[in-house]
């Protein structure tokens, strides 16, 4: 029958007489232009090999069927939803919801950093452990017991409250009980961190404090 391309797909040069299955496909798909040696060979082969000739006809027929089934899809009217203009406009609103969580994460991170720095600044300002820990925990205990283990973070969270605004309310909500417990320190805590939220205060105070 056919030499089944033992020499690898398409690796024969035009010198070889071997007709491969790839040749038959190429012929059926119209990839062997008239005048080319290979084409003449394939045609010769097909004349004497009816089984392969039938195969080639079948392949041609497959392509015809596929084209007649879907060929005219390209003439159909394109639905509006596929027009680039439309897609671009639809894309915009979806772009924002995607940004929103990012903004939230960024704001949250900023708040954490700010709070952290504020906490350290606070520590640096007074006695390392004695200041924030016992005092706040005492106050927290007075207001609300279950949170006690987390109070350190909560204090810093309160520091970030003015910054975070609407976005962070879930976090500051946790810190809520602390905000009213002004005492003498809390107001400083809340206001101080905002301007110095970035690196500057940290190196200044941290070495002394820790």
């Amino acid at each position: 029958m056919i030499g089944r391309g033992l020499d690898g797909p398409g690796s024969h040069d035009d010198g070889s007489d071997r007709i491969t299955h790839d040749d038959l496909m190429a012929y059926a798909e119209g990839r062997l232009p008239p005048g080319i040696v290979r084409r003449a060979r394939v045609e010769n082969w097909l004349r004497t090999h009816p089984a392969d000739a039938a195969r080639v006809r079948a392949y041609m027929h497959q392509d015809q069927c596929i084209r007649s089934a879907w060929g005219d899809v390209t003439n159909e009217t394109i639905p509006d939803r596929l027009l680039p203009d439309r897609i671009r406009q639809q894309r915009r609103p979806t772009a924002r919801p995607w940004l929103r969580p990012t903004a939230m994460v960024a704001a949250f991170a900023l708040a954490m950093v700010t709070g952290f720095i504020a906490g350290r600044a606070d520590l640096g300002g007074a006695t390392p452990q004695a200041d924030s820990d016992p005092r706040t925990s005492g106050e927290v205990a007075a207001q609300q017991q279950p949170i006690t283990p987390a109070h350190g973070d909560i204090a810093t969270g309160a520091g970030a409250a003015p910054l975070a605004d609407g976005v962070l309310h879930p976090t500051t909500g946790a810190a809520g009980p602390l905000i009213p417990t002004e005492s003498t320190h809390a107001p400083e805590l809340r206001i101080a961190p905002v301007p110095e939220m970035m690196p500057p205060p940290a190196p200044a105070t941290a070495p002394g404090g820790v």
């Binding site: 798909e29 497959q62 015809q64 596929i66 084209r67 089934a69």
Partner: peptide, 25 residues
């Protein structure tokens, strides 16, 4: 016959179908 081929196409592994259809169209 076209319907036959189209029907038969759905029974091919999808990679083969994708290749044949791409080449034909």
């Amino acid at each position: 016959e076209a319907a036959d081929v189209v029907q038969a196409l759905t029974q091919l592994p999808h990679e083969q179908r994708a290749a044949i259809v791409l080449i034909a169209l």
